[in-house]
Every structure is written in structure tokens, then in C-alpha cells.
Design a binder for these strands. Structure first.
Lengths: 292, 292
DNA sequence: ACAATCAATAAGGAAATTTTATTGATGCTG
DNA sequence: CAGCATCAATAAAATTTCCTTATTGATTGT
């Protein structure tokens, strides 16, 4: 007689299976999840089936056309996420330097990823000996601070040379379209701003009626103006907020911008490179942003 | 080119490997861990080796005669424990009933396992719709409450019929031995107490000088008396505390007692049975107690 | 020095998982 | 309503992974 039955509450599955599971939950489809985790659809199907059999619970309600989580599925997937989170943090932390250290990160405010605070908290947890500073601001200002030796790494758009491209950030039109036959009112950041020129040249390329109605000096000001319904603007995907509506189709196609990392020319800071790798890895995981 | 290198902080290992890992950490030896998890020594060796290779970090410092965790090992094993904890809790929670419910547990105070509060907290977390009551007391009192319908399950020694044996609890002598040529002073609970009679018959079986110096009315009183150095007593393993010293060898061998679960004769309470299974499973995992 | 114990390793075999290919079911479109 | 496309389940073969047996080298205790 085996003792398999002695451990009714013990789970011995592969973390790969849990990754597939959350992939299914996120993508809402076995096939899409399969592609995401780099396996076949049938592999996913079998993995989930086996897991469900082990748990003796259906995790998804699925017909061939729709897929939704059962209530048990919701609970279990919640745990799966936490487990994977811990597992990845564990990997991060074993390779952490053990000496006391300090990392000063600059982030262009209009490019701050949705969950940056979560990523920072995790990084801090996995690097207990590291003091983290986060400075938000305009790209140009941050790069000046970097040159002055007051930052260790800066994440910003393609505003200077020497940066290393990390991911592509889609630009989107958003805000309120004016009533028909009224000119389009643009809300833009003041110079120097790469999006400002992108917006202007995009509008110049099409023969429509437009004007610049508001020039703001911070991304928050732009966001406020958009929310107030004062016109349309372009924002990087990261800078979108709940109550900002995206405009699709009507206005000219926009290019994607790049997010780059900038390091000081002189000395090596291994922790800074580590932070870049880390962030890249987690943003990729989140799936919110597409790596170039 | 594969994209394996794209995910430097992603761990895709089997939970079995993590269980082996913490087993090695707990047992202090690959061979012992192998036996604990029901595999070969070489399997463990390979599992750990592969994990270390994946992490690019040594988890244990090992010569053929000694084994200790590296500092990275300590960190990673900490994560592994948390991961397994979560995984097992996940299994527990998917099979949890979803209706609002209530569970009143009685525990004989002299048998409370070391980490009961942790187990209770976990059970509560995995059963958010369940209200838990915990009553500690003497076994006889608890069984009366059970009969009166005021408890759903009682854990106690073999004080009544109808219990189901769960695990064996070793009895140990503890306290201060008297100076030589002085009579042995016993600290005992007042009647009815099964340990009292066990102690007395154990002493009667050997021809030594002894007397009952203190009769206490609670396990706390016995523990206090022992700590005060007022004599020797017998305690179930669970009731030992940091500052109570065990006496080995000198005094007569003691039998083990059993811990049993008691359920009301009448109606079925599935949650109570579930709690019993759960506790059994976790105490087994902890390794603190041996299942009968 | 010898026996005992422990972990590492090699090699073969066993078991699990993945893939390819197919089927059945469902919704969409013309 | 038929045909098409999409999705998940399944079967069977193939691959990979993992585990076991057997052995070696190293270390400690007697």
C-alpha cells in the first residue's frame, strides 16, 4: 500500500504547470496560453487536466467557445500567482550581492510602468542590503542628474545617445474628440518633448483641422487636461489611467517609442545592471509591455 | 536560439525538488532526506545538483562528513518553505466548503502541539467562510462539552470510548532529580488523570524511594512546579517547554500515550472531519509527532 | 589500518511529459 | 443553412526527464 493517500493536502506539481495555469487565466484561452509559455495547446490541455484531477476540482468552465474560471479556480490561481511570485523572487535573491549597497534609479515620469511600485518592493525585499532611491522626472533632467553622478541608472525615451533599448512602448491617442466640424484640440507637453513633435507631424501628415489648445509642463498636467475633456493628446501606454479613454482608428497611426536605460559612462555598477535585467524580466512576465 | 536566457529570474522546478531541499535542510543529510521523501540518495543528490546549477549558487557546503547551508542556501530554503506552505494551503483551500460554517474545536491542554496556532491560522486562511472556536481544557471536561453539543470535535487522550486514534505521543520524565539518597518528589495532576496513574505504577514497579509532593489542578501548574525545581513529573512530548529539562535513562521506561479525536455520535460535521485530516497531515509534515 | 558512512557519478531503465495528428463541438459568415 | 474557422479534448508515438542500481572517492571513528 502506498502512502500517497496519507497526504491529502500536499501538492507536487511542476511550477511550469502553474505558469501554464496563470497563462490560461490571463489569456482566456488554452491556445493563447500555449503560445505564451512556448508549448503546444495539447500540452496545456493535459497539464490542466492532470492538475484538475489531482485537486479533484474543475478550475475552468469551458465549452469549445468560452472559458471562465470556476470559483475554486479563482482561489487556486490566486495561490499559483503567489507561489510563482515567491519562486521568482527566490531566484532573484540568491544571486543578490551581500554587501551593503545603494541604487539610485531615475524614471521618466511618462514611462513609469503600471506596477513599478510592486517591482520596486520586490526588488527591495530580495536585496535587503540595498538602499533604493527612486526619482521621477523629465527625461532630460534625469539624464543631467546621471551625468552629475547623482543617479546610477535612468529609464527614459530616446532623448540622448548611449542608451540601451529595452522595450517598445506603444503611443496611443486619447481624450475627447471634438464635435464634428470643430477643430481638433491638442494637449501637449512643452518643449523639449519628443511626443510633442510626433503629434504635430502626425497631424500635419493628414489634412484635417487642428490646433494646440493646451501646453502643459508635466505629465500630470496633461493627464488632468485629458480627463477634464479639454482635448486629445498622445500618451505612452504606461501613462494611461483608468479614466482616460483611448481613441482608436480615427486619428493617424502613431509610431511606437522606445524605452532605454542609461548608465554612467565611467564606473560599473553591477547592481544597476542587475536592476535593469530584473525589470526587463518582470515587465516581460507581466506582459504589459513588449520587449524589443 | 532558445529564449531560456531571456528569463534570468524564472524558476521552473518541481515542488518535489523543493521538498527534498527542505528535507535535506531539516535532516542535515542527503541520505536521511532521501528516506524522508521516499527516494534514493542519488536522486536527492541529482536534484540538488541540478537546482544549484540552475541557480548558479551552492546551497550546501558539504564534505563527505559534514553538511551545512551556505548563506544563499539559507535564503533560498526560506523561500522554498514559504512556497511549499502556500502550495499545500492552496490544495486545502480549493476543497474548502463555500457555505458559511462554524467549527468548535476542543484540545486537551496537555496535548496541544507545538505549532497549533500556526495550523489554526492556516486553516482559517484556507477556509475564509469558517468561524473557528478553540477551547482548551482537561480531556474529561471537553468530552462533556462535546456530549452537550457545544463542541464539534475534541482532541484528547484515551479517556473515553469512541475516539479514533490519531498519533502516538511519547511520555517523558522531566524536572529536577533530587540529591542522592533523598526521596524522589513527584508533581502530578489531580484525579482524574491518566498520567497520574501511569507515573504511580511506573514508580511502584521499581523499588525506589518516592512520594507525591505536589498535586496540581492544571497543566500550567504542573509546568510551573517543574520549572521551579520542585520535583519530577511526566509530560507528553507536546507539553514540554523550553526551560523544562528532560530526564533520560535514570527513571523507568514510560509507555507512549495516544491522541484521539472524538466526534459527536449523532450528526455528521464534514468540516470537523476535514479539520482532523488536515491536522494529521500537517503534524506529519512537521515531523514533530509520529502518526500511529 | 579497516570498517562505516556519506555524497558524487555513471549508465541503464522507467516514467512522465510533449508533440503531432485527429476529432468533435461551437460560433461566425456568406 | 452550409462551410469555415476556432477551440479544446484525445490518442498514440516520441522525446525528454528523472529515478534507480551500482560504484567510487573521501572522511571519520575504532
Amino acid at each position: 500500500m502506498s502512502n500517497a493517500n496519507r497526504s491529502p493536502f500536499r501538492l507536487d506539481t511542476d511550477l511550469i504547470v502553474l505558469r501554464s495555469l496563470v497563462a490560461v487565466a490571463e489569456e482566456g484561452s488554452f491556445s493563447a496560453a500555449a503560445e505564451k509559455v512556448g508549448r503546444t495547446q495539447s500540452a496545456i490541455s493535459l497539464q490542466i487536466a492532470k492538475l484538475e484531477e489531482r485537486l479533484d476540482v474543475k478550475l475552468f468552465d469551458r465549452t469549445s467557445r468560452s472559458l471562465s474560471q470556476t470559483s475554486e479556480g479563482e482561489v487556486f490561481i490566486g495561490y499559483a500567482r503567489k507561489i510563482l511570485e515567491l519562486a521568482d523572487e527566490a531566484v532573484l535573491s540568491v544571486s543578490a550581492p551581500k554587501e551593503q549597497s545603494m541604487l539610485r534609479v531615475g524614471f521618466a515620469e511618462y514611462l513609469v510602468p503600471q506596477h513599478l511600485h510592486i517591482h520596486l518592493a520586490r526588488f527591495k525585499r530580495a536585496h535587503p542590503t540595498c538602499d533604493l532611491n527612486l526619482i521621477l522626472g523629465g527625461g532630460a533632467d534625469l539624464l543631467n542628474l546621471l551625468d552629475a553622478g547623482e543617479l546610477d541608472v535612468v529609464f527614459a525615451g530616446p532623448e540622448a545617445s548611449g542608451g540601451k533599448q529595452l522595450w517598445q512602448e506603444p503611443l496611443v491617442w486619447c481624450g475627447q474628440l471634438p464635435a464634428t466640424a470643430k477643430p481638433l484640440e491638442l494637449i501637449l507637453m512643452q518643449e523639449p518633448c519628443s511626443y510633442r513633435s510626433i503629434a504635430i507631424s502626425a497631424m500635419e501628415a493628414v489634412a484635417s483641422d487642428w490646433k494646440i489648445s493646451i501646453t502643459a509642463n508635466s505629465i500630470q498636467a496633461v493627464q488632468s487636461a485629458i480627463k477634464a475633456g479639454l482635448g486629445v493628446s498622445i500618451l505612452p501606454y504606461s501613462a494611461l489611467q483608468e479614466d482616460i479613454s483611448v481613441i482608436e482608428g480615427v486619428l493617424p497611426e502613431l509610431p511606437a517609442t522606445s524605452v532605454l536605460s542609461y548608465l554612467p559612462a565611467q564606473e560599473e555598477n553591477p547592481l544597476a545592471q542587475r536592476f535593469i535585467d530584473y525589470l526587463l524580466c518582470y515587465l516581460e512576465k507581466t506582459g504589459a509591455l513588449h520587449v524589443a
